[in-house]
Write a protein that binds this DNA or RNA. Structure first.
Lengths: 125, 125
DNA sequence: CGGCAAGATTGATGGATGTCGATATGTGCA
DNA sequence: TGCACATATCGACATCCATCAATCTTGCCG
């Protein structure tokens, strides 16, 4: 957990520097992205930052029926069932996948527009 | 490093299962994304999967001159200089930032079209 | 009711990652 | 030449994360 320091001392320090050095070091005021916003958006990219999760997304997306159950996804990846279940949970929590349990099986599908919204996060940086 | 297994045994196993169980577990053949492609694309998202790196990108993008030097970026984040330097290096290696050294200072700028290309990775999943 | 099968959860473990302090490198300037 | 400054690199440390084996939960069907 990083501590974000923002107080009067730091502000005055920045003002001081900008008068002393004219060629560089004119801090871009506040970051365009707040610490909270950044943390929020990073969660989505964290979910996308694993090769096996990207492959899971691509498989769910490629499926004709629009949904896949865990047993469909386990073997092609060469991962154990608990690991796949773990990755799918992360993708659901990131808002990228939707989970629906029917009987014994759990069906996963892409949340409509989720990938486009994730792409939009980059454009809105 | 995960090991991706792909051999005749697995293929025949899949065919077997599809004849035994008709309701579920029809593996989506090969993952739409190969292990190598997935690893490559994950590198970009790994670079984006940190709040402070997102803030760095936003600050560089927001700067009027289009470039920022390290000293501009260190204080607003509340991180040490080595840490910021480390994050910037990761963003450069991911192909998102460009680094140009002029005199004592190092100027970082957005690689044109890099964010759009990253967004395109999602659409192309 | 009892067993079986699918999937989720837990606990453990090795490896990756963010952060810092200290130091190295390289540049401008007196 | 020598000092001061900006940045990069190194080493260490704590934390996070991907993975697996084992177990738990839940629904299906005999």
């Amino acid at each position: 957990m990083s501590i974000y320091v923002h107080n009067g001392f730091m502000d005055s320090l920045q003002i001081l520097q900008s008068t002393v050095d004219a060629t560089c070091c004119v801090p871009s005021a506040e970051p365009a992205l707040s610490a909270e916003e950044a943390q929020q958006k990073a969660l989505v990219f964290k979910a996308l930052a694993d090769p096996n999760r990207l492959r899971l997304l691509s498989m769910v997306k490629a499926d004709e029926s629009g949904e896949s159950c865990v047993c469909d996804l386990t073997e092609p990846l060469g991962l154990g069932q608990p690991t796949v279940s773990h990755h799918l949970k992360i993708l659901v929590e990131a808002g990228l996948l939707h989970r629906e349990k029917r009987g014994t099986w759990a069906y996963y599908s892409l949340v409509p527009g989720a990938l486009e919204r994730a792409a939009g996060l980059l454009a809105a940086l």
